[in-house]
Design a protein around this nucleic acid. Structure first.
Lengths: 257, 257
DNA sequence: GGATTCCCTG
DNA sequence: CAGGGAATCC
């Protein structure tokens, strides 16, 4: 039985609901990991998503952050947060599905290199690296996905020279991401497309960024060996970013046999 | 040659632009008087309206109020405001067309009976009553239209008992409106429909107010004898209030032969 | 309930 | 440029 998993930073699930529902109807991933839902659990639009046949798991807060996982299969376990010390920010949600664990991350953006928020970002990445071996087994099927806010290599930014040493391209961030992968995770998009300059995020603030393809690949699907070996394809679905009222990110989808 | 004139409190012309354009295309009134445009003259969406064949006249301010007149015929005169002492609020706009003068009003709502804003409302109505004989001739064709924020009689409110003595139904407001009409204006809707309980405004804040028809008739088209005699019909177009993202008001249209 | 403006974040 | 939030007004 083949299945697929998506990650999508929706930048406000309430503002994005029509677009998200349309996309889910078409793409119909078995599992969808959402970031930046920007909504309290109280106000999460559960009903509309359940109508599409998803079990809905979420971990939200008032204005910022917020993660959710939609799954056609019911989860047997749900874990919110990175405890202890993710600062109360709603950035981590994990569920155990029949196909394995899915860990959904919304890594802090970090503002500027050296900024307090940037140190927090590095700390967060280190805590993820520490959490994985504590909670999981790299021999078991597991996905770590989400908006990492780190472009793994220079291939993953539109202008590596301009971005060199800047936030999301800084060596310390890349090293922190690498040490997460070193535990035993493969970057599925890169595994299937070793050379492609394909982005998943185009800043609203850069004029015409999407049209001119001035982007970053920061939304990743990482998987342990059992799943990376079963992965048949990993693609960026660029269409939603071109529709009216888009998120600044677009979905990434991995298919498994 | 027959023609029609509409009044429509759009409650924010920028937020209402798609709905307004659709309605204008269908109804195609010769003249449309708009209230609560809520936009500065700088930001008025002139182009989109001109594309529909209208000359566009407006008198706006930053967040509140704002009036505009769209006319397929060019105006030979345009007068903004009620000078002196309409408090700088953008509530009055008059244009001279081939078919006669059109005076577009957005009467203050008044908040609560006795409130400072309510006294201002009465003062405003008195100033309108004083301005008409000073500027115009009741023997000439003239329309005074807009959101009067007064329901002329108990027939014009959904629950006259509940509303008795309240804002927009208070005897002093009705008397002030009556003294405007006494100069020589007929209420065209009421002239053609002496008994109809037909509303033009349904409050957003009353749950299901439109569906349950809990409304007020406060958007009026008044005309001097030459035009009231030429008026063949006056109707409330209820459709726009039922569409997605509606104004709380709906257009009223008068037809003339 | 909805439009506006102003503020904060990305 | 776009989301959310709080305050103001109707």
């Amino acid at each position: 039985m083949s299945w697929s998993l998506a990650t999508f930073n929706v930048n406000g699930i309430r503002a994005r609901l029509p677009l998200l529902l349309d996309w889910l109807k078409k793409a119909s991933p078995e599992v969808a990991c959402l970031q930046e839902t920007k909504v309290t659990d109280e106000d999460f639009p559960t009903a509309a998503l359940e109508e599409l046949g998803y079990h809905v798991y979420f971990h939200g807060q008032k204005s910022f952050n917020g993660v959710a996982i939609l799954s056609k299969q019911e989860a047997s376990e749900v874990v919110s947060g990175l405890e202890p010390g993710d600062g109360g920010q709603a950035r981590v949600l994990a569920v155990r599905l029949a196909t394995g664990w899915v860990v959904n991350l919304y890594v802090p953006q970090g503002r500027e290199v050296g900024h307090e928020a940037w140190h927090y970002k590095l700390e967060f990445l280190k805590q993820v690296a520490a959490m994985l071996p504590r909670r999981f087994d790299p021999q078991e099927p597991l996905v770590v996905t989400g908006d990492m806010n780190v472009a793994p290599t220079d291939l993953d930014v539109y202008d590596p020279k301009r971005m060199a040493g800047k936030v999301s391209c800084h060596p310390d961030e890349r090293a922190a991401l690498q040490s997460i992968e070193d535990w035993g995770l493969a970057d599925l998009f890169r595994q299937h497309h070793p050379e492609d300059k394909q982005f998943t995020f185009w800043d609203y603030r850069l004029p015409q960024s999407f049209k001119r393809d001035l982007g970053w690949r920061i939304d990743l699907i990482l998987a342990t060996k059992p799943l990376s070996a079963a992965c048949t394809e990993c693609l960026v679905d660029t269409e939603p970013r071109g529709l009216p009222k888009p998120s600044d990110h677009t979905p990434v989808v991995a298919s498994f046999k």
